[in-house]
Structures are given as C-alpha cells and as structure tokens.
C-alpha cells in the first residue's frame, strides 16, 4: 500500500468535508427526510475516512450497518410519523442558542486538547491482512463481550417489536 501522500490528503479532505457537510444538513434541515439523507451522507464520509485510515473492514461494516440499516430505519420512522410537525413551529426548540453555545464551547475545548497534546504516535505499517486476525480475536480474546453483544441484539430485537406493535 503505497498511495502517494498528496492523494491521501485529497481523499482525507474530501471525505472529511462530506462527513461534516452531511452532519450539518442532518441537524439543520427542517424537512426530516432531508435530515435523514444528510445523515446518510455523513455516514458515507466517515466510511471514507475509515478507508483512508486503512481500516477497510470497519468501513464496510459502517456502510452495511449505518447506511444500509440504521438510515433506512430512520427513514421508515420519519414516514410513519409524517406530517405531524405544525408548519408554523420552528424545527429548533427555545433553547437552541444555549445548545449552540454548549456545542461551540465543547468544540473549542476538544480542539485545544487535540492540537495541544503531545500524542505518542507510532509510525506503523499495517502488516498483511488484518481481517482473519480480527475474527480470531473476536472468538478468543473478546469472546465474552461478543456473546454479550449478541444477547443484547436479541433483547433489542424482541424489545423493539414489543414496544412498536399495537
């Protein structure tokens, strides 16, 4: 894997812009369908960033689970509860200025930490195919959380059906 550095930067910047723009659409669009489509855009951008980070498996999982499943779930929920918001009502509640201030303060704090900390970065090359190793570790080192998460998914599945049915 010897992609030129310039190309890596270009890919990073494009994907970062897609992720952030999608996120901004998702939180600002009045129309909820548009917000959900912005969410999909943001998910695709983050998946692209995973590709730039050479975490291909996570990138594909991101597209499968987020773009393929969660976004469709959100779109279904939007369509099932459609046309309810009164037209004259704004999409934001009365505390949106406070929320904006909180978000901006948190962002500047995170910015200070991210740029000010001396990260102990190790220049590592990825050796070979990581996916078999990932599967092996899921079945050995991380077996207990793996099984717990499968139980959680089952509980969530049954719970969602019980809650949502009439």
């Amino acid at each position: 894997m010897s992609t030129p550095l310039v190309l890596t930067y270009v890919g990073f910047l494009i994907m970062a812009a897609v992720a952030i723009c999608g996120g901004l659409i998702a939180v600002s669009a009045r129309n909820l369908i548009r917000a959900a489509l912005g969410l999909i855009l943001s998910f695709v951008g983050v998946a692209g960033l995973y590709f730039v980070l050479e975490a291909e498996f996570i990138a594909v999982v991101q597209i499968l689970v987020y773009v393929g499943a969660i976004s469709i779930l959100v779109l279904f929920a939007v369509m099932l509860t459609r046309g309810l918001m009164r037209r004259d009502l704004s999409a934001q509640n009365s505390q949106w200025i406070a929320a904006l201030v909180v978000a901006l303060v948190l962002f500047s704090a995170l910015l200070l930490v991210a740029t000010g900390t001396n990260w102990k970065v190790a220049e590592t090359k990825i050796a070979g195919d990581l996916i078999p190793k990932l599967g092996e570790q899921l079945m050995t080192t991380y077996l207990l959380p793996f099984e717990a998460v499968s139980l959680l998914l089952l509980a969530a599945l049954v719970g969602a059906i019980v809650i949502a049915r009439e």
């Binding site: 996120g23 909820l32 917000a35 943001s42 999409a91 505390q95 949106w96 978000a103 948190l106 962002f107």
Partner: peptide, 30 residues
C-alpha cells in the same frame, strides 16, 4: 481528532436543539 470533534459537536447541537424526537436520534447517531 478535529474532524471527529466537529462531528460530535454538530451531533450534540442536533440532540439538544431539535424539537422532533427522530431528529434528536439523528443527532445521537452522529
């Protein structure tokens, strides 16, 4: 880290400021 921080704060704003419950969930996903 800066991109992730920006995405997190955008999502936080969405979760705090929106009226619609589905829009709040969208913010949490971000």
């Amino acid at each position: 880290l800066v991109i992730a921080a920006a995405l997190f704060c955008v999502g936080l704003y969405g979760a705090l400021a929106r009226r619609n419950a589905i829009a709040i969930l969208i913010g949490i996903e971000l």
